[in-house]
Amino acid sequence: MTKITSTRLLLPALLALSLGACQTTSPAIGDGSVAYGDSKAVETVTTDLGSTDIQMIAEKMTQSLLQTPEIQTAIKKRHLLMASPVKNKTSEYFDTRMITDTILTQLQKNGVKYVIEGEDMQNQVDELSRQNQSGLYKKSKSVKMGNMQGAKYRLDGSISSIIKKNSSMKDVYYKMNLRLIEIESGIVEWSDEKEIRKSAKR
C-alpha cells in the first residue's frame, strides 16, 4: 500500500517536472537519425547469427548448467571452471567466445569461479613475470609465481548450421552443443543443446 501512495504522489510531481522541461531541453543530441534501441529486443534483420541468438543460447546453457549437481558442488567447494574455444562449424565469421564469455559471466554471478585461457592467459603470464622478473617491484608486495590454479572442469562444444535455400526462401538451422567435462577423467558430466531455426523470404 505504501508503494502505491508514494507513486500516486510521485506521478503528478513527475508530470509537472516533465511538462516544465518539455520543449526546452532534452538529454539527447542529434537529429534523430541515430537512436538507441533495446539491447534485448528480438533481432530479425538477417538470418545470420545475431544478438538474440547469442543471448538465447547463453541463457539456455546457463540455466541448464546451474541445475547440474556438479556446478552446485563446484560453487560450494570452489572448484574451478574454464572454457575451451567452442568450435565454429558454420560458414559465418562468428566469434564463439561471445557465447562462452556470457555463460561464464552469468555463472560467475551465481558464485562459480573460473580461470582464463587462450589470449587472456598470455596477459596473465606477462604480468606475473613482470612482477617477478623485471626487478622493478618490491619483493614483499609482488605476487608469487607458481600459485596459479588449474581448472577442474572445462566447457567445450561446437556450433553448426544447415542452410537451405530456394528461389523464394532461405532457411537456416543452428545447433549449439555444449559439454561440461571433468578435466582429470575426461568424463562428460553435462551436455545440452540449443536449436534455432530462422527463415527469410527472398
Binding site: P85, V86, K87, N88, K89, T90, S91, E92, Y93, F94, D95, T96, R97, G118, E119
Partner: peptide, 21 residues
C-alpha cells in the same frame, strides 16, 4: 587469408569458417 590470420592470432572460431568457406 581470414583462416590464416585468425589461426595465427589464436581466434580459432573465426579461422574455422575461413578455411571452410
Amino acid at each position: 587469408l581470414a583462416g590464416y590470420f585468425f589461426e595465427v592470432t589464436g581466434e580459432y572460431s573465426l579461422a574455422e569458417p575461413g578455411y571452410r568457406n
